[in-house]
């Protein structure tokens, strides 16, 4: 779904990625690679397939849009130990991706450092024209910011049924991206954390069922 962000045309993709057609640049946020294994360390042996599921989704959207540049908007790994725990074949796939395009890692709070061996370039934040890409949204007004970190989710209901799914949140001036990782949960857009970022409220672009569905702020429900 096409939308405008500080005058820049951007497209919210159903996979939960943002497409900047002019720069042929693809933005994904909060991959949280190796989240499964981080739970295993603490004794919860949840399936170790989240990294490959996330990589497969990433490969698919890259194959579809053929970007020149990919920005991973922070929290690419779930924790600092993530890269070391990564299975060899997963690491190879990731290196394959970072080698193929201009790959930019934005620093996240979970992963302040990404090993050089994985390829790509590390930035605290990055400005492309009118848009600034950083992991954690700044408090207060911040024109042109594209951030992640909060994992926005929207809940809407009609006819006694409710749907809760990942979404992009935007007020036309800034945007918070949905989390891309296979095991990443979400924070309801009605949560107070979003209030200071979008004082006037935000539209949700809900990524579900292979499409992006816009939902006005007043249609969004808090979690029950």
């Amino acid at each position: 779904m096409e939308t405008e962000l500080c005058g820049v045309r951007v497209r919210a993709e159903p996979e939960g990625a943002l497409w900047l057609a002019a720069e042929r640049c693809l933005v994904v946020s909060d991959l949280h690679l190796e989240k499964g294994s981080s739970f295993a360390v603490r004794g919860q042996l949840i399936p170790p397939y989240d990294t490959r599921a996330t990589l497969s989704a990433l490969e698919a959207v890259i194959a579809r849009l053929r970007p020149d540049c990919v920005i991973s908007l922070g929290d690419s790994f779930h924790d600092v130990g993530g890269p070391a725990r990564m299975a060899a074949d997963d690491r190879e796939r990731l290196c394959g991706l970072t080698a193929r395009v201009d790959w930019i890692w934005i620093e996240g709070n979970h992963d302040p450092e990404i090993p050089r061996a994985l390829g790509g370039a590390m930035h605290a934040d990055l400005t492309l024209g009118a848009l600034t890409f950083r992991h954690e949204p700044l408090a207060g007004a911040c024109e042109g910011e594209v951030a992640g970190h909060l994992h926005p989710c929207a809940k809407v209901a009609s006819r006694g049924r409710s749907v809760r799914a990942r979404c992009f949140a935007t007020d036309g001036r800034r945007m918070v991206m949905p989390a891309f990782g296979a095991y990443t949960g979400g924070l309801n857009l009605r949560d107070s954390a979003f209030a200071e970022i979008f004082p006037q409220g935000a539209v949700a672009l809900i990524a579900a069922q292979g499409r992006v569905w816009p939902a006005a702020a007043e249609r969004l429900l808090p979690d029950g």
């Binding site: 949840i46 399936p47 397939y49 490959r52 599921a53 296979a182 095991y183 949960g185 979400g186």
Partner: peptide, 21 residues
């Protein structure tokens, strides 16, 4: 809710990668 949400994600991933688990 927290349990449900993550369990759904885990179900999808496990079913895709190891349907005989």
């Amino acid at each position: 809710r927290q349990v449900t949400f993550s369990a759904d994600l885990i179900y999808d991933v496990l079913r895709a990668h190891e349907p005989d688990h």
